[in-house]
Amino acid sequence: MFKYIVKRILQAIPLLFIITLITFLIINLAPGEPIYMFIDPESAKHVNIEVIKHKYGLDQPIHIRYFVWLKGILKFDFGISFLEKRPVLQMINQRLFATISLMLVSVIISFLIAIPAGIVSAVKRNSVGDYLFSTLSFIGVSIPSFWFGLMLILLFSLKLGWLPSSGMRENFDQFDFVDRLKHIILPACVLAFGTMASKMRYMRSSMLEVIRQDYIRTARSKGLSERIVIWKHAFRNALLPIITLLGMLLPGIFGGAVAVETVFGWPGMGRMIVQSTFSRDYPVIMGTELFSSILVIIGSLIADVLYAVADPRIKYN
């Protein structure tokens, strides 16, 4: 097992290298220059632009810039944002908590609802409940999250006045749990509603597959109660595909949800990534890209390891 993990990590290094190279090429191929984001072309004379370009090394050819960036990464220096003039790592760090807390709460909500709903629809296939959950899940996938978010704001903030419409907190002096909860509930629900559907369908189909297996029939014929058959024998096996899903959630947790963060004015990663893309803030784009690539790799590694833990039939050599 240990050997396997080491092997996977070593394999990841050239992969990361290729990812960063491609990303760097693509963002530099995109039209537009970062310079016009922090220099107003309206007020700056041409001379100034050259001075500033030189300062940020933007007058260098693209391959030189890539190697300069790579050299920094090897020293764990992600560079400094063109736009904000802050170290990229510090910027990521400042927003990491907001994003992770939002994502975790939404993931918990979506699993809490999706797993039981998936099981019920599988066990009571073609029942009213099954159709109801399926319909709801399709609605969840289909509704654009920014629209759903705005509707919830209209209802809960504007009409009822129960919840704040925007931001992460009102109490800036200390960590106020109720305050945080009030702010997180709407965006987390919108996110959960959107992703719930796929989890539910996964759970349903994997459960359906499992309860057709011979050992389930055996368990039933032994005279075990339906509750024990489903929850003890079928559930654990049906969870396997969901574990993969968990592993793949990690980069999503980091990347945030752009639309939802914007609608709810959430101070997270997603907004920063969009902002940096529009302003051609290369160090930030590269930094976040590298970070999320690493997380995808770790995520899939964790999923594979969890597989082995959950399913004794799977062995890695």
């Binding site: 903030s157 504007l158 419409s165 925007s166 931001g167 609608v263 709810f264 004015g265 101070p267």
Partner: peptide
Amino acid sequence: KNVGSTANMMIQ
């Protein structure tokens, strides 16, 4: 307070 969009400003 940075609320991220004009729509949010109107709601605020």
